[in-house]
Design a protein around this nucleic acid. Structure first.
Lengths: 202, 202
DNA sequence: ATGTAATGTAGTCACTGTCTACTTTGTATT
DNA sequence: AATACAAAGTAGACAGTGACTACATTACAT
């Protein structure tokens, strides 16, 4: 970190952290390699030693994000419950909570210009996530939930709710939308009510 | 269109159409004002006469998209049904069908870098859409659907399903995902099964 | 200790968005 | 019909960006 050293130390990680901050503050459009380099007090070409190009940086960021969101989804309270419904409900809450707390990373996850240049690591991270959701959904089907619905379709449905809800809730549009009562709501209650709609605990 | 004329005719509209094509082909990252100008055989500064800047072009595109998706949502078969559930179900199908057929425009709708610089027209278009959904959801509540759930939360839930599902289904990631049976499915059946999950016709 | 690979620097290039001054053309007014 | 004016397009310039190159510094394995 000290400016006296020629070598930076762990520039790659600092670049990623700074990238998350910038996206949080100004969106993906505000992200520039040269801007990051300036912020870290390093020459404009330095980031190229750690990321082949801008797409590679975004891809790394998205891969990191998928790992994080999977972790948040699987480590939430009650995920380990023996009741598949309670477990899946907990996963949904963990997912939505993480998305609301990490809007910048969340937005990179499904960003089309990121997925378009996805490398193998990113594809594998995405696959792991969808697999985890699919497994949990399959478990609820074994106890009678939504019988007859193809697993892949049911998984899309279950996944779409926290994803679509988060997309809407972190949309800058909401800021312009005055009548909303949601901004005053307790976050946990909001999460609970939304997830209970898609995975009822009856 | 003839190259012999100094004035182009209706350049603004042609710019928008070409922009949609470019986003369809190469994503939002492939969209450049100069590229559009080249494609239309016009000087690089010409688009500035019709759009103050790139953000204004994207904003116009998004506004147009919101109008289109609202139209597709409200004009689908059975939307006029007297049964609020059947009507809302039809709206969901109309929405999802449109999104799958217009991935480029759909992606601009909630693109954070677009909403961030939203002008009044865009905000109003968004508001009209959410209002239409909210009204239809409220109608289903009057006949006993999801009693006790706050309307705004229920609306987010209802909206999240076709939105999140479309987001996933048009994700370039799916291309890398071999085991998927979804790509071989009939689109209408896919739409029907997904929407029936969130708005059951019992 | 030393040489080699990793890491950072400085310079350059094409491309982009945006601005300005200028040119051409459609149209309303007389 | 002539003409003035606004709308629309052109050409040139500028700074910022991503990416590449050649070069400098440093860490580390041998």
């Amino acid at each position: 970190m000290s400016k006296k050293h020629y070598h930076h130390g762990n520039l790659a990680e600092d670049i990623l952290n700074r990238a998350v901050q910038i996206i949080d503050e100004g969106g993906l459009g505000a992200l520039t390699l040269r801007g990051i380099a300036r912020d870290l007090g390093v020459s404009h070409g330095a980031p190229n030693r750690h990321f082949k190009n801008k797409a590679a940086l975004l891809s790394t960021l998205a891969t990191y994000g998928w790992h994080k969101v999977l972790e948040a989804t699987l480590r939430a309270d009650n995920v380990d419950s023996l009741d598949p419904r309670l477990s899946l409900n907990a996963m949904g809450r963990g997912f939505l909570r993480w998305a609301l707390h990490n809007p910048a990373l969340f937005r990179t996850l499904h960003h089309p210009d990121v997925a378009r240049f996805a490398d193998d690591a990113l594809i594998e991270a995405m696959r792991q996530f969808t697999q985890a959701i699919s497994d949990a959904v399959a478990a609820t089907q074994t106890i009678g939930n939504h019988p007859g619905v193809p697993l892949e379709i049911l998984s899309i449905y279950i996944n779409a709710v926290p994803f679509g809800a988060a997309m809407f809730l972190i949309d800058p549009f909401l800021t312009h939308y005055e009548q909303s009562e949601i901004q005053d709501m307790d976050e946990e209650i909001l999460i609970e009510q939304l997830i209970n709609l898609v995975v009822p605990l009856k």
